[in-house]
Design a protein around this nucleic acid. Sequence first.
DNA 1: CCCACTTCGTTAGGTAAATGACCTAACTAA
DNA 2: TTAGTTAGGTCATTTACCTAACGAAGTGGG
Lengths: 380, 380
Amino acid sequence: MTSLSTSARAVLAELTRRGRATRPQISQALGLSKPTVSTAMSELEELGLVREDGSVQGHTGRSALLWRIGEGAGHVLGVDVGVTRTRIHAHALSGERLLGVSRDVTSPASRSGTADLTASADAAGALLRETLPRLGDSGPLRQIVIALPTVVTDRDPAAASQSPEVHDMLKALSLPQAPLLLENNVNCAAVAEGNLGVAQGAAQFAYVQAGVRIGAALVLGGRLLRGASGWAGEVAHLPFPWDAGREPVPEGLERFLGAEDLLLRTAAAWPASEGEPPTSAEELFRRAGEGCPPAQRAVTEHATQVGRLVVAVVALLDPGLVVLGGGVGSNPLLVQGVQETLSTLSIPVEIRRSGLGATATVEGAAVLAREQALHRLIHA
Amino acid sequence: MTSLSTSARAVLAELTRRGRATRPQISQALGLSKPTVSTAMSELEELGLVREDGSVQGHTGRSALLWRIGEGAGHVLGVDVGVTRTRIHAHALSGERLLGVSRDVTSPASRSGTADLTASADAAGALLRETLPRLGDSGPLRQIVIALPTVVTDRDPAAASQSPEVHDMLKALSLPQAPLLLENNVNCAAVAEGNLGVAQGAAQFAYVQAGVRIGAALVLGGRLLRGASGWAGEVAHLPFPWDAGREPVPEGLERFLGAEDLLLRTAAAWPASEGEPPTSAEELFRRAGEGCPPAQRAVTEHATQVGRLVVAVVALLDPGLVVLGGGVGSNPLLVQGVQETLSTLSIPVEIRRSGLGATATVEGAAVLAREQALHRLIHA
DNA sequence: CCCACTTCGTTAGGTAAATGACCTAACTAA
DNA sequence: TTAGTTAGGTCATTTACCTAACGAAGTGGG
């Protein structure tokens, strides 16, 4: 494919930012002359990357044609290879969602909560083979991003598949031919928050996910902070408790702030007079919301602990905004407790609760795929 | 001043990176033709921004002229307004140091270790007035960066001087007319490590300073991570101890990891048989190095605590490299203990000891000033 | 010392991208 | 209708590069 001219790249980038725009708007935004924008737009139209889409009326003067990313620009896939459920979203390069499907992972490992990448990939692969034919003509598939519940030390699958686990997973997925990137699932969820969720428009923010597992992600100027080898945000590996007296346990924070231990601790402190202790995080939060005292105590205590993690994140990074997500983290009862813990701190910070739910990860993967595809189109 | 052409900007940037270079070298590095580089260089020479500086001989063929940033490009100032000592460094835009001076702050507050910005600024202002005349003709003063031992919520002094403390400090300094930026002192020291110290060439790294006070800074791709409002790295404000049982004290980490409390704890555990306990961090480390058991125990224990802070930084950010600095942090005995604490972690990370000493802060301020001045020259 | 060879730096001529100036088309308001 | 305004196209011109060619200034071999 022949390369785009400089002005065509600029026009494509601006059109991407705006979704739909007229040539005069783009001309003004980029400081390019009208002829230049027109030539560039023709070049893009010839390649099928953009097309006319209505016009702006009601203003004085001649009405301007509206332009948008066209079907020929193609589409991308976001794939969430989750422990208990896998999800696939397809997005056009224009940003609109073409389809979103999901399927349970049924394997002994997934029921016990242990990660079994190959079992998840089998389910995702089957789902993919049923789903792709439904896409019809959406242009070329330009990028796939796979969200994984593991540390992603190398986003490039060519390098990462030297690890046998990743190699087997990719084989089970049997993906169509297209550029491919791997990404951590918490990172994906954070990207979704920044693009579609409560962190829209934030220059930077931290995302703390508390559920069965615990993790964090950092977004700076729209870009993920990945660290030197992909371990950024892997707070699960923090030793805990961090105390002058007791010896900290490696990976202790994961155990302490994960949903499993929360339920165990709650059960241990449960008075016989209140009947059976809750068996899931959802139940615990429901009963706390209904006013059950031991459930409330457990939730408050847990919120304090999560709050201390958030305090550490805030003191180190000053993100200005922290989004709480995940099955436990996105609960309204938790946010209040975290906010109280933070009130001792002199650093200004806002706490928001994620509203995206369980699809956050796959949505983020699709957003990343679209960004990557556009980046390649525009900058190469 | 009339604006530079695009190619002149590129040539100036490349010359800045290389220090001295010939036109053919620049031509090859930038992919520009020889005539283009020549015209761009003439443009820069006419403005006094560059000048010839010898030639390359010994190779076959005609010898090429060497070029460098010229005196007309001007100079910059880095000012460290420290608690006990203030420092001023002047650098030419070419990078060479023009002078470096320092002076003790003599005020009741500085002796007790309390920060008194105005007293420090008085000393720095007097030093500045004696120093500037010695500069001779070094071209225009293009940028001043002031390093402060406080949180810098606004680097722009016009906005920051709304705070009466900063306003008084700037008045006491009575600076010459030039663009001015404020920066946190730990951030400055980190920049120095990245440009002149042990973190040279690192794509990203964390800097942890342990001395009288405790602080951290993060450098990503040569840029400081400042946070939403300048509080990034202010770990001193972390509540401590972070323990399920005990109630954490706000600002507790500062107290716990600072030099003062280290000496108090050491004295409390000091056996009478060993004579008087050490009265300074230097003495403590010296006696530990000489094999004195209680001093060794205190240092080991302290290294473990600093190590836990480093563990938190590494788990959250995966910097790949952590530089330990400050009066306590740069001690060889400490590094070993920190490394042992880190060995429980599965994240790959290297620990290095700062070798820059007490001038790191002012050097970093000067580097930042030069970067800022070049940035303005090249991109505006 | 002379001469072949290489590289530097300048001059001349050519080209692609973007511009400004100008014109026509199309729409609104009165 | 008509006046005023904005969109969109055409074209000569400018800008910012490039390649080609050549003299200048070095090196090394005979």
